[in-house]
Each structure stands twice: as C-alpha cells, then as structure tokens.
Deep mutational scan, measured.
Amino acid sequence: EPLWIRPDAPSRCTWQLGRPASESPHHHTAPAKSPKILPDILKKIGDTPMVRINKIGKKFGLKCELLAKCEFFNAGGSVKDRISLRMIEDAERDGTLKPGDTIIEPTSGNTGIGLALAAAVRGYRCIIVMPEKMSSEKVDVLRALGAEIVRTPTNARFDSPESHVGVAWRLKNEIPNSHILDQYRNASNPLAHYDTTADEILQQCDGKLDMLVASVGTGGTITGIARKLKEKCPGCRIIGVDPEGSILAEPEELNQTEQTTYEVEGIGYDFIPTVLDRTVVDKWFKSNDEEAFTFARMLIAQEGLLCGGSAGSTVAVAVKAAQELQEGQRCVVILPDSVRNYMTKFLSDRWMLQKGFLKEEDLTEKKPWWWHLRVQELGLSAPLTVLPTITCGHTIEILREKGFDQAPVVDEAGVILGMVTLGNMLSSLLAGKVQPSDQVGKVIYKQFKQIRLTDTLGRLSHILEMDHFALVVHEQIQYHSTGKSSQRQMVFGVVTAIDLLNFVAAQERDQK
C-alpha cells in the first residue's frame, strides 16, 4: 500500500453525458421521505430548503428570480454533511469501515464536522487534520463531537509532509485500522450531490432553472449537481466560483495573481482535486475576500440567511453572472454553511477592521482624538531585521541585547519573508524542534498583521487588541530589464502597544 495517494490523481470516472444510468458502476440512493420521529440526527441530513432572495437581486438590477439552496440546514450545519454520511455509508457497505475503526480526514473543517457527527452516532474514533487558518468555532464544535484535532501550517503546499493532507496520511500509516475516506478522491463525494442535492433542486424548481452558481473546494458539490442538471435540464448554465489565490478556475489566465492566501474558508485549493470535473462548468468567476464577507453580511442583514463567507462569494458572483438572465428565468445559488463557524471572524466588526474589510468610518461609535491620525505620526525608528541564514542562537542574543521581542526576517534585497519572535524561538528550542545552530528560517511564521503608514491609529489599535505587534510595510514598484514591473513589500518598522501608548501619553502631556 502506498504511503500516500495524491489528492489530485487523474480521475478514473467514466461518467458521460447521455450515458444510461443503468451502466453506472456505483451504488445510487434515492431521496427517502422522513418519518415524523427521526431514529437519529443523521436522518436530518439532506432535504434542505430552497429560499427566495428578495432584496439583493433587485438591489443589483437582476431581472431573474434568485433562489438560495440553504445547505446550513443540514444536521452539522453545512453541505459537507451529505458527503460525510455518504462516504461512511459506502465504506461500511463495501466492508472497508468496521466497528471500532478510526476515521482520519484532512479538511478545512466542515467535512470534519460532518464526519465527527456521523462518527459520534456510529461509534468510530475520528481524527481531523486541518490548517491553522480555520476558525476556532470549527475546532470547538469538533472537540465537542469527540474528534481529535491536529493543526497544520496554512501556507504548507498540499504535497508537503507538513500539509493537512501529508499529516493525515502519516497518521494513517501509524494508526492500525485507520482510514482516510479522502473527500478529494472519493466518488461518494460527487455521488452524494448527484443522487440527492441535484434531485432536490430539480424537484423544488419543478425542473425549471436557467443558471446554477456554486463555490468550489473539493469540487464534489458542483460536479455532482452539474452532471445531473446537464442530464435533466441541459439549458442550465453552470457557474463556478473560485477565490483569488486558488488555481481551480479555467482558463488558467484567471488564476494569475501574486496573491497566495485568502481568508474565506472551505473553497479554493492549490491543486485540482480528483473529484472535480471542470468540463461540466460553463464559466468560472474569481471572487475576493472583501466581496465575500460584504455579501455574507448582506445576506444575514437583508435576507435573514445566517450563512458563512463562501455563501457571500457565491452570491457576489451570482449578481454578476445572472445579469444575462431575463424576467421569468431563474438562478439558484448554493449557500454551503452557517455563520456559526465564523462568529469571531467576519461577523465581528473588530475582525473586519483588522483585516481591512471594514473602515473605521463605517462604525458610528465615538472615537478618541488620536483615532484618525496616521501611523506615520508615530515617528517610528528604523527596524531591526535579520536574514533567514542567521542562526536561532545568534538571533536570540541580538533580540535580548537590543531589547526586542520580535524581528522581521528579510532577504538580501529587503523583501519581507516573515517574522521571528523570542517566545516562538525559545519554545521551539525547548520542544526540540530546532537547535541553536539551525537557521532562523526554520522558525519563520507568517501569521502576523501588516499595516501601512497611511493607515489610521484606530486601525492599529484594533490590531493591537488581539496581537502583540504589527509590521509596518510599504510597497515598492521595481522595474526589470524586460520592461515588466513587480510590486514588493518592504519593512518600514515594527509597532507595539507600548509605542502607541507612549505616543498618546506624550501628545497629551505636551497639550497640557
């Protein structure tokens, strides 16, 4: 057995438009009618409502009807409940999964919650491996369901041993009777949507819809739904939504950006999952974080739909894509998950301010006199920076000697690579993860907040409520011999709460 199987392995699926269902090699399930009293909570997966979006479509000038398939009504709160249950049931049916076995899954959280929910009911041990950027709410729900959680670096490539995929496979090879159901490759993922989600949409719309818009992560949702719609409703256009920084969209030119990270969760990847059939997507749109969270908040405030950030991405694209539809036509959007997962993220004004998705003037509360002053007023001194090749031991000596707790790590040209902190280095040394002679590049981390000289002290204040420091950066445009230009970030300084307090105190003292 291989040590790991690539999540982007070539698909062996034989589905073709027009091929009889009787030739399918898979076990198919028909939607079942729910009894009045459910035998367990797993029976509350599927049969989610279709809700008309009344205000947002009109606000953006849509002539067509805009409908939302509300997947956050599933038992675990997301569309991923469907595939989690289906993968477990299919693994039980073919004898792969037996009582007492362990389920391991690399996930952005929602599939993990679905699997942990099913594992709690069915009696399996469950280990979820997820990147650090995923919300604390997801972690809390997983723990409450009895799952064990392993976190991995957000910026690790999918084929790196440190990625959530790599760590999951390492655990599988170490733990007896453990299984990775593997949402990236498992046919049960798109089949769950082909058999149930798509049929529900067709039934709820009486077979009449002209466009379907869905955000894409593993691709199982859009693949399964689109294949069924292509068979039953061939005139329906399928629109895929991919965040900026991901590479799922086609044509490839759409993916060209210097951005590699994004805040919206559960969609987009740096590889093409095996289950994603991009041939059934008629057109791709890219979405960005700001519009995703703005539209998610709009869905909550104006439509009462308590959905997550990827739902915002989907609707932001839908109001663009559906401009081509006329009166009497219908566009369906998939709202994948609930706001429950993001209470401390985009639902929080403070978080939105820190990330730059909300401006101070958007909030009406009274601010102190210094709130709208610029960061450049602080008069920061030149920063202490270190090269990635310097040793951890030497870096600790320098920081202690100069009285700093942290320093930016830059390359020879001064471009920011990340940050090192005294606390992080000492804990890594004590844990045996690094040696004093190791290069400081081994303990770089990139989960820090950046701020510009033109940003306000109010925004800085919000950042420092949650973080010990902020890195002050400025952009530099560099022209190359080819005539092309590129933008790079340079370090201007490091600012802490002490710097802000000293500035405010000094100004008030001078005024007296």
Score class of each variant (00 low, 15 high):
251 P>T: 08
296 A>H: 02
358 L>Q: 10
482 T>D: 06
405 D>Y: 08
254 L>A: 11
446 K>T: 11
446 K>M: 12
255 N>H: 06
286 K>A: 04
489 Q>K: 11
251 P>S: 09
251 P>V: 08
486 S>T: 13
473 V>Q: 13
485 S>N: 09
387 L>T: 12
261 T>Q: 11
433 K>N: 15
257 T>W: 14
391 T>F: 15
422 L>G: 11
498 I>V: 12
403 G>C: 15
353 L>S: 11
452 R>W: 12
479 Y>V: 13
302 Q>V: 09
343 M>P: 05
324 E>R: 03
363 L>S: 09
372 H>I: 10
268 G>S: 02
291 E>Y: 08
298 M>K: 14
456 T>A: 15
450 Q>E: 15
316 A>Q: 14
310 S>Q: 03
443 V>F: 14
500 L>H: 11
451 I>D: 06
475 E>V: 14
422 L>R: 15
337 D>R: 04
288 N>V: 08
284 W>E: 00
262 Y>T: 08
304 G>T: 03
269 Y>T: 04
433 K>R: 12
329 Q>A: 14
442 K>I: 14
373 L>H: 09
335 L>V: 15
371 W>F: 12
416 I>W: 05
462 H>M: 11
373 L>Q: 03
303 E>N: 07
486 S>E: 11
381 S>Q: 13
393 G>Q: 10
395 T>N: 09
465 E>S: 14
461 S>I: 02
310 S>T: 08
303 E>Q: 10
256 Q>K: 12
392 C>T: 15
357 F>E: 04
238 I>W: 00
498 I>T: 12
499 D>Q: 05
369 W>Y: 03
320 K>L: 12
392 C>I: 15
322 A>N: 05
364 T>K: 11
246 S>F: 01
305 L>E: 01
300 I>V: 06
441 G>C: 08
310 S>C: 04
404 F>M: 14
399 L>A: 12
496 T>N: 13
422 L>D: 09
279 T>Y: 15
476 Q>H: 13
462 H>W: 13
285 F>C: 07
396 I>Q: 08
408 P>K: 05
493 G>C: 14
278 R>K: 14
294 T>I: 15
297 R>G: 00
404 F>R: 02
257 T>Y: 12
429 L>I: 14
255 N>E: 06
428 S>W: 14
432 G>M: 05
408 P>A: 08
482 T>E: 05
449 K>A: 15
